[in-house]
Every structure is written in structure tokens, then in C-alpha cells.
């Protein structure tokens, strides 16, 4: 049962195509696990559809005018591309732990992740995204803590396996924590199962102890 969902701002940003890649990846992964947010996203897409439908009204016909030859040119493109196979792709149910969009970044499932130790038993794997934000997978051993850190930007953490607690709240599989610049937090993984998360931030984390701060350039977080 997912209790912590995407915010309206994240859904609208994703629908409008305005988010950095790392955030897009977190949103797409959460939606893969959460039909409630899938439906919410569809409603934000419907806003985009309504704006598209009204787009000619306020721009005026002239700028958007489509020449007579345009339909023929489009049909020529269609014919040049060859016949279309009109079959819907068969989607096999997911077997691994990672949702499809994330699995494509990793190049497989859990066993394809190339973990690097970052101290205290915690491991991470940085994912290749554009530089507007960064994304990484985090492995937190059962019962272990991620060093206390605040943020300069927004940090999104999506639980894939296990659970962690932060202040008074618990985050289990599929749950998303949205932390902003004001939040100082120290998530602790629950006993019983190692916790694996997808985390994205649009600013470097600042750890509140000396050692992790010195390590920051090496960790690229």
C-alpha cells in the first residue's frame, strides 16, 4: 500500500516536459508502481490536451496557418515510412525488482547494478543523466542510517525494496519522500531487510559532518 505519492507540481512538470532527466526518471518509476499517480498524471495530460485544443484560439489563425500542401506532405512521410504493423505490443509482467524505466538505465535488474561503497555499509550507483539534477541508487543495510544531510534543492527518494523511517514517517516500497531545502533528515533503514532506493536531487547534498563533506566531490552527490 503506497502512502507517499508524487506532488501535483512534480506531475505537472513531468506532464509538461519541464523536469530534469533525473526527476523524470523518479516520476516514471513511481508511476510504474502506482496506479493512483498514473491516473493523476493522465489528468494532467488532459490539461495539456485542453490547452492544445484551445491553442489556435488565442494565437490567431495566421501564425499557425497550415498550408494546403501540408496534408499531402504528411501522407508522403507516412508512405515513405512504409506500412504500419497495427498490433499492440505484448507487455510481459515484470519479473525483477526494478520498474522498466529504471531497468533501462541500469541495463538489467538488481544484479546489473555496479555498487560503490560510500561508508557505513551504504552503497550507491550513480545513473547517467543530464547535469540539471543527479540520480543514484542507494543500498542501505537493514538498520543502518544514511548520514544526516540537508539540501540546497529538492531531493526525491523512491523506495524500491525494504523501508526506511525519517523523523516520524515510514516509507515502504513505492513510497516517495520529497525533501526540500528546509528539511534536514537522516533516514534509517528498517530492520529485517536491506533498503534499496532511487534518489534524485537538483543540488549537491550537504552532509552535516566533516568527513562526508570532504568526500562529496568523490561521491558526486
Amino acid at each position: 500500500m503506497i502512502r507517499h505519492h508524487l506532488s501535483d507540481a512534480l506531475l505537472m512538470g513531468y506532464s509538461a516536459g519541464q523536469l530534469p532527466e533525473a526527476f523524470n526518471l523518479v516520476v516514471a518509476s513511481h508511476i510504474s508502481m502506482c496506479d493512483e499517480c498514473r491516473a493523476r498524471l493522465a489528468s494532467f495530460d488532459a490539461v495539456g490536451g485542453a490547452l492544445l485544443d484551445a491553442s489556435v484560439d488565442d494565437l490567431g489563425e495566421s501564425d499557425a496557418a497550415v498550408p494546403e500542401s501540408s496534408l499531402a506532405a504528411t501522407m508522403a512521410r507516412i508512405r515513405a515510412a512504409g506500412p504500419v504493423e497495427r498490433t499492440r505490443p505484448q507487455v510481459a509482467p515484470r519479473r525483477g525488482l526494478l520498474p522498466a524505466p529504471l531497468s533501462r538505465y541500469v541495463g538489467g535488474d538488481l544484479d546489473a547494478i555496479r555498487w560503490k561503497p560510500v561508508g557505513g555499509g551504504v552503497r550507491q550507483a550513480i545513473l547517467p543523466t543530464d547535469k540539471a539534477a543527479s540520480a543514484r541508487l542507494l543500498f542501505i543495510p537493514a538498520g543502518a542510517a544514511v548520514p544526516d544531510h540537508g539540501h540546497r534543492g529538492t531531493e526525491l527518494t523512491l523506495v524500491l525494496q525494504g523501508a526506511f523511517s525519517d523523523a516520524s514517517e515510514r516509507f515502504g516500497p513505492g513510497d516517495l519522500e520529497i525533501a526540500t531545502a528546509a528539511d534536514e533528515h537522516s533516514p534509517v533503514a528498517e530492520q529485517g531487510m536491506d533498503c534499496i532506493c532511487l534518489a534524485a536531487t537538483d543540488a549537491p547534498l550537504k552532509f552535516n559532518t566533516l568527513l562526508p563533506r570532504m568526500l562529496q566531490p568523490f561521491l558526486r552527490i
Binding site: 523524470n24 516514471a28 533501462r104
Partner: peptide, 22 residues
């Protein structure tokens, strides 16, 4: 159209959620 716009403006890559089974 949005996806095409992201391509032409070289905006951030935008991974899609897992497909739903039909």
C-alpha cells in the same frame, strides 16, 4: 507533440512509465 518538442528543444530526456498490459 510534447515528446517531439522535448526532442527538438533538446530538453532533458524523459523516460516513460512502464507500459500497462492491454
Amino acid at each position: 507533440a510534447r515528446n517531439r518538442r522535448i526532442d527538438i528543444l533538446r530538453r532533458s530526456r524523459r523516460p516513460e512509465p512502464e507500459d500497462l498490459p492491454w
